[in-house]
């Protein structure tokens, strides 16, 4: 029996291409960072501000942050030791240079190896992406701080940071 290879190969190629396109679309054109999926991390990190996606910073940054929650950008955000350990585990496991590499690797471009900034807004990549945002937009009463991603990125809560 003769097997018709051509339609099969063409079909597989088309399917593969569709999957690639779909993944790209689902990934929000490269501006997708999976939101925090752990309820404890969401509760502790998401009460005052957006629970920033772990894939936006390298693991060393998360370790530094959780290591000094008593002085969290001027606020006391301290938690008990077991909670801190669980949060650190989750954030470092999904960081831009570990489990979240697929989404966060691009955020680390321009960052010297071993550098561990405490703010996402200090990343060269973040600065470049926001270079066109005028000062008056940052001072707008509904924005007020660069930590307030969802003011402009309306789907940030779901992980989408498109314009």
């Amino acid at each position: 029996m003769r097997i018709a290879y051509r339609p099969i190969v063409l079909g597989l190629l088309a399917a593969g291409f569709s999957i690639l396109l779909l993944q790209r679309a689902l990934a929000g054109g490269g501006h997708y960072f999976p939101p925090v999926g752990d309820p404890l991390v969401n509760e502790e990190c998401g009460s005052c501000h957006l629970a920033y996606p772990p894939s936006m910073l390298p693991a060393a940054s998360w370790r530094r942050l959780i290591g000094d929650l008593r002085n969290h950008f001027g606020d006391d955000a301290s938690v008990d030791a077991p909670t801190a350990a669980r949060i650190t585990d989750y954030l470092t496991a999904n960081a831009a240079d570990s489990g979240g590499r697929r989404y966060g690797e691009k955020m680390l471009r321009g960052l010297a190896p071993g550098e561990a900034p405490l703010r996402i807004t200090e990343l060269p990549r973040w600065i470049r992406e926001h270079r066109k945002v005028p000062d008056r937009d940052w001072r707008h009463k509904d924005v007020r701080t660069r930590a307030n991603c969802p003011a402009c990125h309306v789907d940030a809560q779901r992980g989408y940071f498109d314009e």
């Binding site: 009460s47 005052c48 501000h49 957006l50 509904d142 924005v143 007020r144 701080t145 930590a147 307030n148």
Partner: peptide, 9 residues
């Protein structure tokens, strides 16, 4: 009424 944190949440 709902409130708002300094970071807008």
């Amino acid at each position: 009424a709902a409130g708002r944190t300094p970071t807008g949440k």
